[in-house]
Design a protein around this nucleic acid. Sequence first.
DNA 1: GTGAAAGCGCTAACAT
DNA 2: ATGTTAGCGCTTTCAC
Lengths: 359, 359
Amino acid sequence: MTSRVALARRPSIHDVASRAGVSAATVSKVMHGVRTVKPENVRRVQTAVAALGYRADPLASDLRRAKRRIIGVIVPELESEFFGTMVTELERLAEDRGYSLVTATCRESVDREEDIIRRMHDWRVAGVVLAPVRDEHGPAASYMKQHSMSGVIIDRVLSDDIFDTVSADSSTASIEVARQLVGKGHRHMLVIGLGSHAATSKARIDGFRAEALDLAPDCRIDVLVAESQIGALREAVRAYFDRGEHPTAVYSLFAKGTLVALSEFRRRGWRCPEDVSLIGFDDAEWMQVTWPSIAAVVQPVEAIAGNAMDMLFERIEGREGQPTARLQRCDILLRESVGVSRHGQPTGGEEQATPPVAD
Amino acid sequence: MTSRVALARRPSIHDVASRAGVSAATVSKVMHGVRTVKPENVRRVQTAVAALGYRADPLASDLRRAKRRIIGVIVPELESEFFGTMVTELERLAEDRGYSLVTATCRESVDREEDIIRRMHDWRVAGVVLAPVRDEHGPAASYMKQHSMSGVIIDRVLSDDIFDTVSADSSTASIEVARQLVGKGHRHMLVIGLGSHAATSKARIDGFRAEALDLAPDCRIDVLVAESQIGALREAVRAYFDRGEHPTAVYSLFAKGTLVALSEFRRRGWRCPEDVSLIGFDDAEWMQVTWPSIAAVVQPVEAIAGNAMDMLFERIEGREGQPTARLQRCDILLRESVGVSRHGQPTGGEEQATPPVAD
DNA sequence: GTGAAAGCGCTAACAT
DNA sequence: ATGTTAGCGCTTTCAC
């Protein structure tokens, strides 16, 4: 092995060039595998590269090319499994294409969302995967549109006005949830959500309500939606239970809502599913190992990420034309937290012969 | 409001300069608030900037300064609350100092860890916050050392050989856990961990064992550690239980281990805490809303992040000298999953008069 | 095949 | 106080 040469600063392309006795241009060509370089020179360059441990500065290189091989990702938060997995997946897909991923969290703030998209524009990112706080009409999307940035919007989206969008098929999933709950005898159900997740919340509520009322016109569906504060939703749910309401099932439209529901059940000493059933959007690893295990709507994260990247790169490579809206089907995992409600009584819960296996 | 001028490409500093009738250098000075510019020209520049919507390209600017205002972060994974919160926090702290954060996930792979640090070096990041897969002797840390990059190592660290380190005080926390379990009468305890988390696992096991044996010399402590595969740990735990072992308490050294334990309890129909108690490293939101609520060692994420950034920037700004190792104290949250084991019997569990409130 | 020259967008040293 | 010059590390014509 050739021993490395110590240098104060990192070796530049010129250091390689002079050591190999060629010009910087030739080095550049070798680095990019251009065929028209004399084999002899290729070897000399390769030797010099190895000796110096040379690696190109991708940012300087991008500067010259006027197009950066960077994809920006904006997510509302990173504390939940959903976005964590999403970002991990997007990173892999971007790297497969030779791009770097730069992720920013807007902490559920629309103002920060705008701030971040500006900075990404300053960075001249090649494209953006945006998971908006609210929906595709937020400030980030407008900014992207106005500055003709390439972008795809995922997760919390309604329509395909401006950009390609990819999201879970909330409506179909909600219809299936309604079918399951009504089928298990539930006639009084509570739906909880967050208004700031406008896009997905709406589709989820509408699909659920329509199907439930269609199957059981006599059923009662209450909806509790707080604007953006999880604390406010908790208050609302608490007040609702406090005034004596006792639905037989709760359907949460997002992950933290499921936690709020569980926490309020505990507070009142309600057992799940005996006293009340629960199902929520977003699966998490813990949900299958607790007592009861918690039923969940599983969003196809890999499919969403894959689709988003495919579409984004098509746009980056110049595809024009109408934006498309892709919906990915969800799985419904009915676990122990959903029980049977008999004769319209406020309790459910099947006997568990033996504890089911967790995996 | 001045109306924006449409331009094919983004306005550069020269566009601003010519519109304002000054040189690019003057524009640069105005942008950086240099005081020696004639007020008249300051105004002209500001007007041009506003009219064109000019914003500097931070990457081009960094190229020239030869120091990039970018902090790299490397984490083993992003699916858990711990690293998600950590990254969110680090992002905030970096931005407070005018830096951007670039996060990469190495998916628990040491090879990828090295890959990523190389890329970050290529990017000439100003500094790196590394949460290594194994410990501070992994390839990323060596690479950083070898190329004299500024860095701080967090979470899975043993000593302070090379870089400043910040982590939770695993040892003290484990001692406290031992005290609690032994105090509640447990005399046969199982500790589960992952060998690839070498650094933290070791400190956690040693502290626990020493304290437990000190308080109750007759107690039995079994340790199950799989190298790196969570599946292998699951197999080991399963085999251990299958051959008839029935500890009265399980102490998990990392978040996923807690899930494995719960899942294996379910599989055998063991109730927690009646049949077996459980406590694990890393708190998560769900742990306080399930039945039983799960006891946890809470790592002080904000403190770790804050400390790490402080130390990193000191190094970036040139501080020399011995690396220091900072330990941040953990909280122990004893929840329902830890019960009392009476008279050395294999079962525990206190009566729960009323279900405790969740928050 | 190769290298000189120009330039991506910006800043810093130095004249003026 | 300002502009000119030079150059960060790289790529890309375009002559030779």
